[in-house]
């Protein structure tokens, strides 16, 4: 389960909130340096899965490793080896850009001699040099997202988790953001990203579709399309692909549900 080529491995990962099963026995692997897209409609369980991988939610069942560390026992070590961008913008809006960066450098324990270099790298990457002393709350959406990403990777983690990093951001900023993701992946960083945008799914090396807590499809975007093409013999768009996968899943699942009742 711990081969050197994989960044994330999960087996039968499960999360219940009371009776409600938010993530239902999900298994997958993410290779090192891969951009792995996690797709699914609202409430599918994407954020819940990411939170379990990041060590802030305790799984109800199953097992897994992130960067070779067990998600059930070594959460704190995992936290030092990953970057995380939560779905909600979560930098301090009353702090300036620089203060936010300094704050995260502090809690990620960036050694003093590297601090300045990392800060400059982030500012450069996010294009925020002129806004060093602006309050973060006054920045526009695209800048905020890039700054969040910057703060999440100050400590140069080998794996990063991005939960809907581009929601509510204009198309140009989204494109810029994806350029950054590619740049990181090019350096060997594993990127685990969730999204609602179908065009973004195409940018991923591999995608997994999660629906009502269950993993219903996984593979390279092109392969998934080819499979579908074989059934219907019309070239599907990504969107068509997902809608039909979900519908097919509902057809299969409904009889079972009735049996259960």
């Amino acid at each position: 389960m711990n081969s050197p080529g994989t960044a994330v491995v999960v087996r039968d990962l499960e999360k219940r909130f009371g009776d409600f099963v938010a993530v239902n026995r999900v298994s997958f692997e993410v290779k090192r340096g891969e951009i792995f897209g996690f797709l699914g409609p609202n409430g599918a369980g994407k954020s819940t899965t990411i939170r379990m991988l990041c060590g802030i939610l305790i799984p109800s069942g199953g097992a897994g490793t992130v960067a070779g560390l067990d998600i059930l026992t070594r959460q704190e070590e995992i936290k030092a080896n990953i970057g995380y961008m939560s779905q909600k913008f979560s930098l301090y809006e009353d702090l300036t850009v620089e203060e936010n960066i300094d704050f995260y450098s502090g809690i990620y324990r960036i050694p003093a001699e590297k601090k300045q270099a990392r800060k400059e790298w982030v500012l450069q990457m996010a294009g925020l040099k002129e806004h060093l002393h602006s309050r973060t709350g006054t920045l526009s959406g695209g800048w905020k997202q890039r700054l969040s990403l910057g703060c999440a990777i100050l400590h140069e983690p080998p794996v990063i988790f991005l939960d809907e990093p581009t929601s509510g951001v204009d198309p140009i900023s989204r494109r810029q953001f994806w350029d950054l993701i590619y740049e990181l992946a090019g350096k060997g960083v594993t990127v685990f990203v969730t999204t609602h945008y179908m065009d973004e799914a195409e940018y991923c090396d591999r995608i997994a579709l999660i629906y009502r807590g269950e993993l219903i499809a996984m593979g390279a975007p092109a392969d998934l399309k080819t499979e579908k093409l074989r059934e219907d013999s019309i070239a599907p768009s990504m969107e068509d692909l997902f809608v039909s996968l979900i519908e097919a899943h509902d057809r299969d699942a409904r009889p079972q549900e009735e049996v259960r009742r």
Partner: peptide
């Protein structure tokens, strides 16, 4: 929501 971000740090 900043708490969640803090929790995912060492």
């Amino acid at each position: 929501g900043t708490m969640e971000q803090i929790l995912v740090t060492p």
